[in-house]
């Protein structure tokens, strides 16, 4: 069950129980932390640059989209380095790997909720002159019937504020 890249110069008894096949050379950790520091500096610099807008045929995306993609890609790479080398998942058994992956599968599943928010007839973002409370839920369909400056007669979801 010895992991890849582990050293085999230790005998049972002189190290902790079961550790003889799981001791990594210290250079693995040094390389990991150096990579993490470099990536951290990189993500700070990347965030200072305003990326150009993307125009790919019918697809138009603001430059901030690219900025966010870069920042989160670097974050995912940093997280993978920590999980693989510091948390020893690269050197662990398949069952441990399975459990480690399950957590991140859950993260992906929970973000599927955003599909619901993108398509449901409730839009919490509508801000109108009569409505000083962006953050309240408001049915999209009802909003569509009104003009920009009309005052709604029925105000179910919106609690007016000063």
């Amino acid at each position: 069950m010895a992991g890849h890249g582990t050293t085999h110069k230790y005998k049972p008894g002189e190290v902790a129980w079961g550790a003889e096949h799981h001791i990594l050379p210290i250079t693995v950790y040094v390389k990991t932390i150096l990579a993490l520091f470099v990536l951290m500096v990189l993500t700070i610099f990347a965030a200072q640059i305003s990326m150009p807008d993307i125009h790919l045929g019918p697809l138009h995306l603001p430059g901030t989209f690219l900025n966010n993609i870069i920042a989160l890609t670097i974050a995912v790479v940093k997280a993978s380095l920590v999980v693989m080398f510091f948390m020893h998942v690269k050197y662990s058994t398949s069952l441990t790997r399975f459990w480690a992956i399950i957590g991140f599968v859950w993260m992906c599943l929970i973000f599927f909720i955003l599909m619901d928010y993108a398509t449901r007839p409730l839009d919490p973002t509508v801000a109108r002159p009569w409505m000083s409370d962006p953050g309240s839920a408001l049915p999209k369909a009802r909003d569509a019937k009104q003009s920009e400056d009309s005052v709604p007669t029925l105000n179910v979801n919106v609690r007016p504020r000063q």
């Binding site: 993500t43 305003s50 901030t64 920042a71 670097i74």
Partner: peptide
């Protein structure tokens, strides 16, 4: 860190 400190302009 990137989500709170590095929001692009």
């Amino acid at each position: 860190f990137p989500l709170y400190y590095l929001i692009p302009k």
